[in-house]
Computed example of a mutant assay.
Amino acid sequence: MESILAAGRLDHGRITIVPKPCSIAEIVETCSARQESIRRSHRFLLELDRIPQTIYGDRPALDQVFGNLFSNAVKYAPESPNVHVTGWQEGESVCITVRDEGIGIDADDLPKMFERYFRARSSTGIAGTGIGLNLVKQIVELHGGTIQVASSRGNGTTVTLRIPIGAETSDEMRVATG
Rank of each mutant, 00 (worst) to 15 (best):
V136K: 03
T157F: 14
G156I: 01
F66H: 15
P164Y: 00
S3M: 01
G104H: 04
L69P: 09
G91F: 05
G91C: 00
V149C: 09
G91M: 08
I126D: 02
I103Q: 14
T158G: 02
S123N: 07
E36I: 15
V175F: 09
G145P: 10
Q35A: 11
G125V: 00
R39L: 06
I105N: 07
L69C: 03
I96H: 12
S151R: 15
G132Y: 03
L62E: 14
S122M: 14
R40K: 14
P111L: 04
I139L: 12
N134T: 12
V140P: 03
A77F: 12
I4P: 04
A150Q: 15
R59T: 13
E26T: 15
V65I: 13
G67C: 02
H12M: 09
G87M: 00
P52L: 08
R121C: 11
S23Y: 12
Y56L: 02
D49K: 14
I165H: 04
V18A: 07
V83F: 04
T124Y: 10
Q138P: 02
P164E: 02
H12N: 15
L10E: 04
H12F: 05
N82W: 08
V85I: 04
D63N: 15
V140W: 07
D100L: 12
G128W: 06
E79T: 06
K20M: 01
I103N: 14
I165M: 08
D49M: 09
G13F: 12
M173T: 12
A25L: 11
V18W: 09
E26K: 12
D108N: 13
V85P: 08
Q148H: 14
R99T: 09
M113S: 13
N68F: 10
G128N: 04
V28N: 14
M1N: 13
L69I: 09
N68W: 04
M113V: 11
V98F: 03
S3W: 06
N82G: 01
G132E: 10
E90P: 07
T129S: 14
L10D: 04
E2F: 15
H12R: 11
A61I: 05
A150C: 10
T30C: 07
A6T: 02
T124K: 04
R9Q: 06
I126L: 09
T177A: 11
E90V: 00
P21H: 00
Y56D: 01
E101W: 14
S151F: 10
V83K: 02
R119Y: 01
F44T: 08
A73C: 09
R153L: 15
V65P: 12
I147K: 14
I17F: 05
I17V: 00
V159G: 03
E92T: 07
I17P: 03
D106N: 13
F70C: 11
K75C: 08
S3K: 12
Q89W: 00
Y56M: 03
S170Y: 03
A61Q: 04
